[in-house]
C-alpha cells in the first residue's frame, strides 16, 4: 500500500505542477489578452474616429455626386449642342471636300500655267538677252549713222550749191516752156483755122453728091451709084476727122471733155465706116458685155477705129477674121 500512496502523491504533484504551469500560461495569456484588449480598444477608438471621418467623407461624396449629376445634365445639353454642331461641321466638311476638289483642280491648272509661264519666262529672258545684244549693235549702228549724218550734212551743203545752179537752169527752162506754150497755142489756132477751112469744101462735096444721087439717080449705073455712096461715106469720115481735129485743137490739158457715152454706138459707127473692108475680109465683129463709159468720145472713136482697122489689115487673108470687143471695169 505505500507505493500506491506514493504513486498517487506523484500523480498529484505532477498534476499540480501541470496546473501551475497551466496557470502560469494562463496568466501569460491573460497578460497577452489584456495587451490585446488594450490594442483592440485602441483599434476601436481608431475605427470610430475613422467612421466619423468616413461619415464626413460620405457627406462630401454625396455633395460631389449631386454636383456631378448637375454637371451630367449640363453635359447632356452641351452634348446635344455639340451633336448639332457636329452635323453642321459634317455638312461644311462635305462642302469643303467639293471646294477642295475644285481648288485641287485649280491648283493643277495653276501649276500647268506656272509651268507655261516658266517656259515663257525663259523665252522672254532669252529675248531680253537678244534685245540687249541688239541694243548694243544699235548703239554701234547709231554711231555709224551719226558719222554718216555728218557726211550727209556736208553733202547737203554741196547740194544747196548745186540746187541754186539748178534753180537758175529751171528759170531758164520755164522761160523756154512759156515760149513753147505760146508756140503751141499758135499751132492749135493754126489747126483750128485750117480744119475750119477744110470743112467748107468738104461739105460742098457732100452736098453735091446728094444732089447727084437725088437728081441723077435714073441716069447712074448701079456701079456709079455705089461709087457715089462710097464717096459719101469717105466724105463723112473725113468730116468726122475734121470735127475731131477742130475739137482737139480746142482742148488743152485742163479741158478734157469727158462724156458718159454708150460704147455700142461708137462701135456701130466704126463698123459702118469699115463695112467695105469687113466685107472684103469676110470679117465679123462680136460685141459682148460692153457698157456706157466716161470717155472723150472722138478720141475713143478714133482709138476703136484704129484698133479694128489694124486688126482687119493684119488678119490672115485666108481665114475670115472674127473680132471680139469686150469691156471690163
Amino acid at each position: 500500500m505505500d507505493n500506491t500512496i506514493e504513486s498517487a502523491e506523484d500523480k498529484l504533484s505532477i498534476a499540480n505542477r501541470k496546473l501551475l504551469f497551466q496557470n502560469e500560461e494562463k496568466e501569460k495569456r491573460a497578460a497577452e489578452l489584456s495587451i490585446a484588449n488594450k490594442e483592440l480598444i485602441f483599434q476601436n477608438e481608431e475605427k470610430e474616429k475613422r467612421a466619423a471621418e468616413l461619415s464626413i467623407a460620405n457627406k462630401e461624396l454625396i455633395f460631389q455626386n449631386e454636383e456631378k449629376e448637375k454637371r451630367a445634365a449640363e453635359l447632356i445639353i452641351a452634348n446635344t449642342e455639340l451633336a448639332f454642331q457636329n452635323d453642321e461641321k459634317e455638312k461644311r466638311a462635305a462642302e469643303l471636300i467639293i471646294a477642295n476638289t475644285e481648288l485641287a483642280f485649280q491648283n493643277e491648272e495653276k501649276e500647268k500655267r506656272a509651268a507655261e509661264l516658266i517656259i515663257a519666262n525663259k523665252e522672254l529672258a532669252f529675248q531680253n538677252e537678244e534685245k540687249e545684244k541688239r541694243a548694243a549693235e544699235l548703239i554701234i549702228a547709231n554711231k555709224e549713222l551719226a558719222f554718216q549724218n555728218e557726211e550727209k550734212e556736208k553733202r547737203a551743203a554741196e547740194l544747196i550749191i548745186a540746187n541754186k545752179e539748178l534753180a537758175f537752169q529751171n528759170e531758164e527752162k520755164e522761160k523756154r516752156a512759156a515760149d513753147l506754150i505760146i508756140a503751141n497755142k499758135e499751132l492749135l489756132a493754126f489747126a483750128y483755122i485750117s480744119s475750119h477751112d477744110l470743112q467748107e469744101p468738104l461739105r460742098k462735096i457732100q452736098t453735091v453728091v446728094t444732089i447727084i444721087l437725088e437728081n441723077e439717080n435714073k441716069n447712074l449705073s448701079e456701079k456709079g451709084k455705089y461709087n457715089f455712096q462710097r464717096m459719101q461715106l469717105a466724105a463723112g469720115r473725113m468730116q468726122q476727122l475734121i470735127d475731131d481735129l477742130l475739137a482737139f485743137s480746142r482742148i488743152n490739158t485742163t479741158d478734157h471733155q469727158f462724156e458718159k457715152t454708150d460704147l455700142n454706138l461708137i462701135i456701130e459707127e466704126v463698123k459702118n465706116e469699115l463695112r467695105d473692108t469687113m466685107q472684103e475680109k469676110h470679117a465679123s465683129i462680136e460685141v459682148t458685155e460692153i457698157c456706157p463709159a466716161n470717155i472723150i468720145p472722138f478720141q475713143f472713136r478714133q482709138l476703136m477705129y484704129n484698133l479694128i482697122s489694124n486688126a482687119l489689115k493684119f488678119s490672115n487673108p485666108d481665114i475670115p477674121a472674127h473680132i471680139i470687143v469686150t469691156a471690163a471695169l
Partner: peptide, 9 residues
C-alpha cells in the same frame, strides 16, 4: 447749121 445733105437743106 448748113446741112451736108441737099434734101435736108
Amino acid at each position: 447749121r448748113k446741112p451736108v445733105a441737099f434734101d435736108e437743106l
